[in-house]
């Protein structure tokens, strides 16, 4: 009798996993916008990329984003090259964040909702715990994401480049925007 109970318990325990295997939908983008604004004395400059890749898995409550840093462009190629050298992109090509939603989010609401995300942010080969606030909004089945935060590059052992006449400030403003589309996890 105990063996029958064991089998039933095993079935019940893993039933959600077994049932959801074929309908595992996540929200995904590979064309999100990432932007940073940095400054030197008397001048600010912006770097942009439209290759932000990421997904939100509401079932597992996982948020995972990464950016190939080589895709960042500031509009001046010599400055881009310095930026890549500073970030050591040959060795550490990605900036990445993996975490979970730390605040409630109603997937069925079309209202813009402020959310908090907690996880690990990695750049320059250094990983730090990070909590970021942003907004998520269901727009016709897709999720629109926007988040801004301040990144202190010295926290990630990045030496602010000092270039003869100026030195880049330690703090840079980060912004990401993306439209995440429902996608089967099997397609990723």
């Amino acid at each position: 009798m105990t063996h029958y109970l064991l089998v039933i318990l095993v079935h019940l325990s893993f039933a959600p996993v077994l049932n959801s295997a074929g309908e595992d939908t996540v929200y995904f983008t590979d064309s999100g916008q990432a932007e940073f604004t940095s400054s030197v004395p008397l001048h600010t400059f912006t770097g942009e990329s439209s290759h932000l890749t990421g997904m939100f898995d509401p079932e597992e409550n996982v948020i995972d984003f990464f950016l190939d840093l080589n895709t960042l462009r500031t509009g001046i190629d010599r400055r881009d090259r310095d930026m890549f050298r500073t970030l050591v992109v040959d060795e550490f090509p990605f900036a990445e964040f993996t975490g979970t939603l730390a605040s409630p989010f109603d997937l069925n609401s079309s209202e813009e909702q402020t959310v908090s995300v907690t996880g690990e942010f990695t750049v320059h080969g250094v990983t730090r715990e990070k909590t970021v606030e942003g907004t998520l909004q269901n727009q016709g089945g897709s999720l629109k994401l926007r988040a801004e935060w301040i990144l202190d590059i010295t926290d990630y052992d990045i030496e602010p480049p000092g270039l003869l006449f100026y030195r880049v400030r330690d703090e840079i403003e980060m912004l990401i925007e993306a439209e995440l589309h429902p996608t089967s996890r099997d397609e990723l």
Partner: peptide, 13 residues
């Protein structure tokens, strides 16, 4: 799903 599986594969552009 484990932690590694939950992450996207990191691919260069």
């Amino acid at each position: 799903p484990d932690a590694a599986e939950a992450q996207l594969q990191r691919e260069r552009v």
